[in-house]
């Protein structure tokens, strides 16, 4: 499958603090990668390195794009919920349109075409009727769809989600992963989560990030691996929430 981007022995961090060390990862079309790891292990930093917000100390990121694709954004991003001010006076449509911001479009107001694009995405997400509402009046699940719409409006080739399950109650969560599964037919997805149990059921591959990155070419991880990388585990689930039972350590089989 075609490669979208390649992270080549990247070391990155903030100030003189190294958060990621010698990370290698290639992302292909239709990948669905779950990134797990402890808090402060560098999960979000990895996403920021891919988006170019954090510049690596060493190593580089290579994008494999055709010339006409350089015109548009490759990545769509859904940040963590807790950084957002829900009382800010802004409407749903404006939030979605902010996914189109770029240095070039600095002056102009939105064209009618951009607004139509925003409406069509809101319709797909089932929240067209909320288009003129201020974000403060939405429920967690609705808000998550707004931010997903913002990430999707630039039709990215790689969608990156940072802890999307902190947004919502578990009933909404099942729907949300179903949407992601549909989107995965058109784009690669990286999802950062502390919730190992739920995401392993949906993702195709798993990467553990704890300063170093360990990539598994399947969505089954062993207890031994989890312990080795000090990945936090959340395995107890109830009702309809699908979850993966992790393989036991081989020594336990006697």
């Amino acid at each position: 499958m075609e490669k979208i981007l390649e992270i080549d022995s990247v070391t990155a961090g903030y100030g003189d603090q190294v958060v990621l060390e010698n990370v290698n990862l290639a992302i292909h079309e239709k990948d669905f990668i779950g990134i797990i790891g402890p808090n402060g292990g560098g999960k979000t930093t990895l996403l920021k390195v891919i988006m170019g917000v954090v510049k690596p100390f060493r190593g580089k990121i290579r994008f494999f794009t055709s010339v006409e694709e350089n015109e548009r954004r490759i990545t769509g991003y859904l940040p963590q919920m807790n950084n957002l001010d829900r009382n800010f006076p802004i409407s749903v449509t404006d939030v979605v349109l902010s996914g189109l911001m770029s240095r070039e479009g600095f002056f102009s107001l939105y064209s009618g075409k951009q607004k139509k694009l925003a409406y069509s995405i809101l319709e797909k997400m089932g929240i067209y009727h909320l288009r003129n509402k201020p974000v403060g009046e939405l429920s967690g699940g609705q808000l998550q769809r707004v931010y997903l719409s913002r990430a999707l409006i630039s039709s990215p080739r790689l969608l990156m989600l940072d802890e999307p399950s902190t947004f919502v109650d578990t009933r909404f969560e099942t729907d949300f992963y179903e949407i992601l599964r549909q989107l995965n037919k058109e784009m690669a997805i990286i999802i950062v989560s502390h919730d190992v149990g739920t995401i392993t059921w949906y993702v195709k591959t798993i990467a553990c990030v704890n300063r170093f990155l360990h990539y598994h070419r399947s969505n089954v991880i062993t207890q031994e691996q989890l312990e080795a990388y000090n990945c936090p585990i959340q395995l107890i689930t109830h009702g309809d929430i699908p979850h993966t039972v992790l393989k036991k350590h081989e020594k336990d089989h006697d």
């Binding site: 917000v53 991003y77 940040p79 957002l84 902010s98 911001m101 770029s102």
Partner: peptide, 12 residues
């Protein structure tokens, strides 16, 4: 003003 961190990801 709404979301600085997100604006940074767009190289604003």
């Amino acid at each position: 003003a709404f979301d600085q961190e997100y604006a940074k990801t767009h190289n604003y």
